[in-house]
Simulated scan of single mutants.
Amino acid sequence: MLTLYHSPQTRSSRIIRLLIELGVLDQVDVRIVTVTRQDGSGGADPSNPHPEGKVPLLVHDGVELWESNAIIVYLTDLFAEKGLGRRIGDKDRGTYLSWLAWYGNIVEPVLVFTAAGLNHPYLDATFRGAPEVAARLTAQLEKTPYLMGSEFSAADLLVASPYTWMPQATPDVQVVRDWIERCESRLSARQTMEFDRAHMPG
Rank of each mutant, 00 (worst) to 15 (best):
Tyr74Thr: 01
Pro46Arg: 06
Leu100Cys: 05
Val107Tyr: 03
Gly42Gln: 06
Ala154Leu: 03
Leu123Pro: 11
Val159Pro: 04
Ala44His: 09
Pro51His: 07
Leu75Glu: 00
Thr76Lys: 02
Leu84Glu: 09
Ser153Asp: 00
Leu137Ile: 06
Pro49Glu: 10
Leu84His: 08
Val63Gln: 02
Thr76Pro: 03
Phe152Leu: 05
Val133Phe: 03
Glu108Lys: 08
Leu118Ile: 13
Gly104Ser: 13
Thr144Val: 08
Ile106His: 10
Glu81Val: 14
Ala160Gln: 07
Lys91Pro: 09
Gly53Thr: 11
Phe113Ala: 02
Ala80Leu: 05
Tyr122Met: 12
Ser68Lys: 00
Glu108Ile: 09
Glu52Phe: 15
Glu52Tyr: 15
Phe127Tyr: 15
Gly62Glu: 04
Met166Trp: 14
Ile71Pro: 01
Glu108His: 08
Leu58Gln: 01
Asp124Glu: 14
Glu132Ile: 12
Arg128Glu: 14
Val107Thr: 12
Asp61Tyr: 07
Gly42Phe: 10
Val159Ile: 09
Val107Glu: 07
Asp92Pro: 01
Gly104Met: 08
Glu67Leu: 01
Leu57Asp: 00
Gly149Asp: 07
Tyr96Met: 07
Ile72Pro: 08
Pro131Trp: 07
Pro49Asn: 09
Lys91Phe: 11
Val133Leu: 04
Ile106Asn: 08
Leu123Gln: 09
Thr170Val: 12
Asp61His: 15
Ile71Met: 00
Glu64Gly: 02
Gly129Pro: 03
Gly89Val: 13
Asp45Trp: 08
Val59Met: 00
Asp90Lys: 09
Gly94Met: 07
Gly89Phe: 13
Leu100Thr: 02
His50Pro: 10
Ala130Glu: 07
Thr95Ile: 15
Val63Ile: 02
Pro51Trp: 03
Gly129Tyr: 05
Trp66Ile: 00
Tyr146Val: 09
Glu108Pro: 06
Asn119Lys: 13
Thr114Phe: 03
Asp90Phe: 10
Lys143Met: 15
Ala135Ile: 11
Glu64His: 06
Thr164Asn: 13
Thr114Arg: 06
Phe127Ile: 11
Asp92Ile: 05
Leu118Glu: 12
Asp45Thr: 09
Trp165Pro: 09
Gln168Trp: 05
Leu78Lys: 03
Gly94Pro: 05
Glu151His: 03
Leu147Gly: 13
Asn105Ser: 15
Ala116Cys: 13
Gly43Asp: 01
Asp45Val: 10
Met166Phe: 14
Ser161Gln: 11
Asn69Glu: 13
Ala154Lys: 04
Glu67Ala: 01
Val63Gly: 02
Leu58Ile: 00
Ser68Arg: 02
Gly43Leu: 01
Lys54Ile: 05
Gly42Leu: 07
Leu157Ser: 06
Trp165Cys: 09
Thr126Gly: 11
Asp45Lys: 11
Ala155Phe: 00
Ser161Trp: 07
Leu111Arg: 12
Pro51Arg: 10
Gly40Ser: 05
Glu108Thr: 13
Leu137Ala: 00
Tyr74Asp: 00
Glu151Val: 10
Phe152Val: 01
Leu111Ser: 08
Val55Thr: 01
Ala116Arg: 15
Leu123Phe: 14
Thr114Lys: 04
Gly53Cys: 11
Gly40Ile: 05
